[in-house]
Nucleic acid binder design. Structure first.
Lengths: 200, 200
DNA sequence: TAAATAAACGGAGGCGCCTCCGCTTTAGTG
DNA sequence: CACTAAAGCGGAGGCGCCTCCGTTTATTTA
């Protein structure tokens, strides 16, 4: 990687300071809006809350999909960062568990975006491979670290864990979805801790 | 199947005569509009051209997708009807060839609708299985009739022919797409006629 | 620091979406 | 035919999308 001003501005000439600020603010506000109201959140409302004109929003993100994509990438990025932070600050098994809980939140937003995200992911295959690669990479290092430290059993593969989490995504959209998913993660952790050399 | 007033109104109490008329006109106009301008054709424009108010359009088709679906089903229906008509009016091999040419037109519209149709077909799997079943059924009877009459070789399966036509759909969207596809159909027919018992 | 210029801003305006509900038409009924 | 209820109509109105371009601001240059 060469030097670059910031994520989201790869190989572009650096944005003017105000433009940079506005762009970041927009993404941040949009992330909240999409999470709260789904992808159909009003772009004019997003612009207003970010304190910019609608024109500014459109200059930065020529279509709604552009904005959704950037928000989604940011989400993934955050999830992966969290993996590193958690690994640094907690015992390996706890880190894994906390991360999986955060993963549940991530899936929750992803479901909010469901329809158009699905379209986006089939249309833009780069987006799909980029993000799924990064997420499963993050998970792999957490699982491997936990296994190496003896906090979870050593005979599991991270892809198995990923697969187990698949149930979260496909579970029906009931109101208690979040609690169910939380329990699923706990259950999964119990299974992973069972028979570990340094169970705790 | 029980008695039903009309296609598109299965198991509903029959529409009032004016409603029926308006509905049909709307579908007809929409079909043209979608073919010409893609799925983003203005619904208000469609309503106007059909000589009804926008409210009427929305009463019959609560969302754009509903309308797209009905138009698409009608398209498929027309394609299948054409198979029967052509089979009645032409020698079996000619019928098959003409039908495949019409199939090209059908694919052309389908491409126009591409993005939202893809979404619709993954969302609404009934639509997918219904239509693909009907289309491949139509093709099968044409191929079998042509094979039975000795106008094309007997050792081909209709699914092979379908597969061969797949190239039409996946071909890049160049301006000369239609001609290319026409040539592909001719080429395919030559292959099918080669070694037929009653080649002509 | 001031002037010059390129970059970015923002919101008015035009268009399409969709809902809502008072008005019109149809299909019965006597 | 006249009347009525139910079915259907339609377009005004409110909102969101997106473009366009005159105005403002950051950066560079002197």
């Amino acid at each position: 990687m060469t030097t670059e001003a910031t994520r989201d501005a790869p190989a572009q000439k650096p944005l003017r300071a105000d433009a940079q600020r506005n762009r970041e603010k927009l993404v941040e506000v949009a992330a909240r809006a999409f999470a709260a109201d789904g992808v159909d959140a009003s772009l004019e409302e997003i612009a207003k809350r970010a304190g910019v004109g609608i024109g500014t929003l459109y200059r930065h993100f020529p279509t709604r999909e552009h904005l959704v994509e950037v928000v989604y990438r940011r989400e993934v990025e955050g999830l992966c960062h969290a993996a590193e932070d958690l690994a640094r600050e907690h015992p390996a098994d706890v880190a894994l568990e906390l991360w999986m809980q955060r993963f549940v939140d991530y899936i929750a937003t992803k479901r909010g975006l469901a329809t158009s995200l699905r379209l986006l992911l089939t249309t833009n295959s780069t987006l799909f491979s980029d993000t799924s690669g990064r997420v499963s990479g993050a998970m792999r290092s957490l699982v491997e670290a936990a296994a190496a430290s003896g906090k979870i059993r050593a005979d599991v593969d991270s892809s198995d864990v990923m697969h187990a989490l698949g149930g979260i995504y496909s579970a029906p959209n009931t109101p208690d979805w979040r609690e169910r998913s939380g329990r699923l993660v706990k259950l999964l952790m119990d299974g992973l801790r069972f028979g570990a050399t340094k169970a705790g």
